[in-house]
Design a protein around this nucleic acid. Sequence first.
DNA 1: TTCGTCATTGACCGAATCGGTTAATACCAT
DNA 2: ATGGTATTAACCGATTCGGTCAATGACGAA
Lengths: 205, 205
Amino acid sequence: MNEKFFDLPQEKQERIINAGFRVFSRNSYKKSPVQQIADEAGISKSLLFFYFKNKKELFLFLMKKVEEITTQALLASKCYEASNIFDMMYLGLVAKVGIMKDYPDITNFSVKAYYDDDPDIRDDVRKIVQPYTKLETNRSIPPLDPKDFKEGIDLRLMYRDMYLASEGYIWQMSQTSVIDVKKMMQEYKEMIEFWRELYARKEDK
Amino acid sequence: MNEKFFDLPQEKQERIINAGFRVFSRNSYKKSPVQQIADEAGISKSLLFFYFKNKKELFLFLMKKVEEITTQALLASKCYEASNIFDMMYLGLVAKVGIMKDYPDITNFSVKAYYDDDPDIRDDVRKIVQPYTKLETNRSIPPLDPKDFKEGIDLRLMYRDMYLASEGYIWQMSQTSVIDVKKMMQEYKEMIEFWRELYARKEDK
DNA sequence: TTCGTCATTGACCGAATCGGTTAATACCAT
DNA sequence: ATGGTATTAACCGATTCGGTCAATGACGAA
């Protein structure tokens, strides 16, 4: 790709990236017209082909961009440093919501890209995504210390409950065109505190 | 449309319907080729145009089919007759999973169709979907009697928790190509019993 | 076998759309 | 004006699209 792309003002870069996410998330790779991406980005198709030598290069660039954006946001959220599962989940989802505010179609794009089996891109997508899926720590249960929680609680099911509800949250958000971030955040915060009250062992010093 | 479609053997009808769900769920209306639907259904494009006079008629037929399938399955599941919220949610999701076993792409199809804003179909889709969204009872909280649940539980948040987790379940299922119905059902059953133990007031006669 | 009926298809059409190229233009500092 | 850079309109050959229609196949009645 043409390195001059990175010299563009940040706002223009993001406009192009978001247009790519949007168009590729609504159609398969093959059926996504470069023309439409250019239109939604407010530039000409020719210019897009000036920065990216062809459709495939643009697509794979967007794939790598997803990884970059998410890992960076999760790191910045400090969710991995949280002292308990509730704070960890909250910080994690706040980070994801923040991402979706800036890149509304990033979730649908990555899901779509992952399951696209077009021979033109399939292998390259696997190659990019592989290291990312290996550290998929969310689905499997993280190490939890029983003494942090009320007695008689099945920690496996507790975590599954919270994980699935969080997934449901993100899914709902990804389906609505206009995202009310403030409200979503507030509602999830409520949810977390509800769980904390429900599951966590009360501290008595 | 040609009424002879309904004279076809059930299996062939479903093959065509599923092919339609599948193709339309992977691309926008305009970018979904009728040819591909015919291929996946194992018939010729000409025959498809014999039963449905054009692409739009086929699409709108599928839209109505979604409504028919879901309302019928939910009614048959007797989830509305359940005596408590836990059984109700369980029966409701069992019904939805059953649908997805027969029509794996129905969820993605209906979501996609709902948000497609192609002027060719937009207005007709709204017209079909409108009465269906009005009785959207799941998102809003159903009437719950506090004396059925443990004290101190915020019933609003309790329901939101269960609703979101169920959504997360369905979303996960709709994303995986091969659906292990048995396992999914079993896991959700576990989840329900976990909630019942957690939320429901113990009966002492 | 022959005929007639009806389901089904291959071949075809004009129009539209695709990814990609290129020569020309707009813009701007000197 | 000049030169260089960012950006585009116009264009290309190839492909794909929705839709049509004459031809084919299957099959039972005669």
